[in-house]
């Protein structure tokens, strides 16, 4: 388990680190750094750039500001003195997985198309229209790693009832396999495309204890109770997490667990770089802070204990 957690954290860290480099490359490619070697008024700078998608350009500049590459004083912006240390050691390299790199490269390329128009057909970040690309992402070894952590942390086994919010196309099979034939896995996702891919896998595996529902998790009102609720890489698409967290705590059995997997913002200083690329998906809002999850739990009035597994997994036990 320790090694899985380390693998998860090291790869998340690398994803954020590599994203900084690609962000840097964008600044060079679009002449942003050259232009900002002299102070510019924010708005006139945005208007002067030949970048069709101004909203994306603003997001890019704001990300540079967050990372300290560009400084903003009042309404003027300019390039900062910036240096960046890329960390690689034999110790952490043994945990790094190669599979996610080409997928991220594909996403980095999409920025060029998005700079022309946000509706460009080569942007593959729509959960329904591009469910095939999302499935390729969700099928990576990286994603299997956190599913294994979830299975172990939740002690998943036959006869348990599990609710997976934002289940995607692979978890119904990979998580569902632990719960049959007498348990129950309910996967909820708002993308019919993703669910249709999951459905075909479930059907060929014969997992009749797996139920998939097309629903917006912000509006769920489950009637049944569950031993484990899973939220992996889903909170970044919710504008307010309080209501969902409260609902989840209400439907958890006593001693039941809520397992959350996320690159918590306070643990990964370079995360704004990765967030910039994820924002090509129009539903993306931002990775959550662990502290906002804990405060949502506090305001749910449920009694709970929590433990942290590394830097990216929270296990909340309802008392």
């Amino acid at each position: 388990m320790k090694s899985l957690i380390r693998k998860l954290d090291e790869n998340i860290s690398a994803m954020a680190q590599i994203s900084v480099i690609h962000l840097f490359q964008l600044g060079l490619k679009y002449g942003i750094f050259r232009k900002l070697s002299e102070e510019q008024a924010y708005n006139s700078f945005i208007n002067s750039m030949s970048f069709g998608n101004k909203a994306l350009l603003k997001n890019l500049i704001d990300t540079y500001i967050q990372l300290g590459i560009i400084k903003k004083e009042g309404e003027t912006i300019s390039l900062n003195e910036f240096e960046y240390l890329l960390e690689l050691s034999p110790e952490n390299a043994k945990y790094l997985l190669p599979g996610w790199v080409p997928i991220f490269e594909e996403i980095y390329k999409m920025v060029d198309y998005a700079s022309i128009t946000p509706e460009h057909p080569k942007i593959l970040m729509d959960f329904d229209k591009d469910a095939d690309f999302w499935d390729m992402r969700l099928s990576l070894e990286f994603n299997s790693i956190y599913r294994k952590i979830i299975a172990e942390a939740g002690k998943l086994q036959d006869e348990m009832r599990v609710l997976d919010l934002g289940c995607g196309s692979v978890s119904p099979l990979e998580i569902g396999q632990f719960l049959g034939p007498n348990g129950k896995y309910v996967g909820i996702d708002f993308s019919p495309g993703i669910l249709s891919i999951a459905e075909s896998r479930i059907k060929s595996a014969g997992f009749d204890w797996v139920i998939l529902k097309e629903m917006d998790i912000r509006k769920i009102m489950p009637k049944n109770r569950y031993d484990v609720v899973i939220m992996s890489f889903v909170l970044e698409y919710l504008d307010s997490i309080n209501r969902v967290i409260k609902t989840v705590m209400d439907i958890l059995e006593e001693n039941g667990k809520l397992i959350i997997v996320e690159p918590f913002k306070e643990n990964y200083p370079n995360i704004p770089a990765w967030e910039f690329f994820e924002s090509l998906s129009k539903e993306f809002i931002g990775f959550p802070y662990k502290s906002s999850i804990l405060s949502a739990l506090e305001s749910s009035n449920a009694e709970f204990k929590f433990s942290e597994l590394g830097k990216s997994v929270l296990v909340i036990k309802k008392m």
Partner: peptide
């Protein structure tokens, strides 16, 4: 393998 998994999805 992927084409088979995506058959239902693509048929939409």
């Amino acid at each position: 393998e992927l084409l088979k998994s995506y058959h239902l999805y693509y048929s939409r």
